[in-house]
Design a protein around this nucleic acid. Structure first.
Lengths: 221, 221
DNA sequence: GTCAAACATATTGTATGCAAGAACGATTAT
DNA sequence: ATAATCGTTCTTGCATACAATATGTTTGAC
């Protein structure tokens, strides 16, 4: 075999959960997954253990693994924490960014502008991830970057839904511009505040999120 | 068999790492651990996978698992993030605490006062954990509470070292008093700022931490 | 007719066995 | 004598087999 079956499986299953291939609430049968991926139950079990440790699935003793369905309350809380962490990354980036970081950040921002103009939400979603990644790097805190990336992954499906909301992509991009300015100007607190409100699910946006969730719920039911 | 060997093993090994029974850098041999705990390699492997997912150990393909040694840089970063999350919890607690939370927080604070006066750093460490736990609860964000608790656990050995520094326990307790006042007064930003500087490893304290780490390093070498 | 208990089946949890790769040592050649 | 290469051994990685429990169905009794 190659080298690390488990690593590959982990990414596949995790992506399957995050993209909705495995719906929330769905029971993950070990032998089914094993057959599906052409491996034995052992690596499957190890992957499930890892995902359980991250909190993506829940393993009830003797009763199997199910994809957790984070209710609106919990999703809101996750965005809340994410907003704070991103704000922190922005503040650090404003204080610590180097010339190289500056160039990378501007390049990522340019890419966002292009995909935003093209109207391709999927492309924008990808470039948006790169943009935020550039901010993490500019913050020069490897640990913070890891935490942010992990949370970003877990929130991926919901962030994707948000972009579909009317005009959200344009608004998002214009917010980016302010964030870049604050970071490059070295204004830590401005960068923090702007990133916080960029991420946070406030006011109307929470209603949008919940209703979109409800729709998706109805579709899978 | 009982019910969940893996859960028990996970706690034991995790605690072993956190308390230093398994030293950083040490190689964790599967068969040795299996013999030690009287089980087969399978549950041991699953535990190691979980710990690897949390980041407590590192599994290098075909080369076994080693306890990760987070360098001073990384430990500093972890405290930095922790400070921000705790600050956030404090701000939320200031805004959202109920009458019940108020009572719990004051009770936890009282216990800290007692153990602080007794001079027992271990007792204070425990009560301190309860105190911070009460703040998480008062913040009414289950997700944030989980994140904080996880980080708290990972930083446990270093926090313990800090308390041994001269007068740190008294200083810590007096800081608690200010935090409690800010939270109960509903002053979110004050609570945030106080908790941030309560946790953060700033100025002299970073030097203290590094030198204490170096000493421990020399002892295990 | 309905409810409860017992048995059967399916699925999880643990152990063991087999294969492949990495580390360490020995032997040989320069 | 030293270094390099080949081989052996130890350990990880995956698969399969066995044991234990939970769930569902069927049958019997009230």
């Amino acid at each position: 075999m190659a080298e690390n079956i488990v690593q590959g499986l982990r990414d596949k299953i995790e992506n399957g959960i995050v993209t909705g291939l495995f719906a929330p609430g769905e029971r993950l049968d070990e032998v089914q997954l094993a057959k599906r991926f052409g491996v034995s139950r052992t690596p499957i079990r190890e992957v499930l253990m890892q995902l359980s440790a991250i909190g993506l699935i829940e393993i009830r003793p003797r009763r199997g693994a199910v994809v957790v369905e984070p209710g609106p309350q919990r999703i809101y809380e996750m965005f809340e924490v994410m907003a704070e962490l991103e704000g922190m990354a922005g503040a650090l980036a404003a204080r610590r960014h180097t010339e190289e970081d500056r160039a990378d950040l501007l390049a990522a921002h340019d890419k966002c502008q292009q995909s935003s103009n093209s109207g391709d939400t999927d492309a924008y979603y990808y470039d948006n991830e790169l943009f935020h990644g550039a901010i993490y790097l500019a913050g020069h805190s490897a640990f913070l970057a890891e935490q942010c990336t992990t949370l970003h992954r877990r929130l991926r499906p919901y962030r994707r839904l948000q972009l579909r909301v009317r005009n959200r992509m344009k608004t998002s991009f214009s917010e980016h511009t302010g964030i870049v300015e604050a970071i490059l100007a070295g204004d830590a607190e401005a960068a923090r505040a702007l990133l916080r409100s960029h991420i946070a699910v406030q006011g109307d946006r929470f209603g949008d999120l919940v209703s979109t969730l409800a729709k998706r719920e109805a579709r899978t039911a």
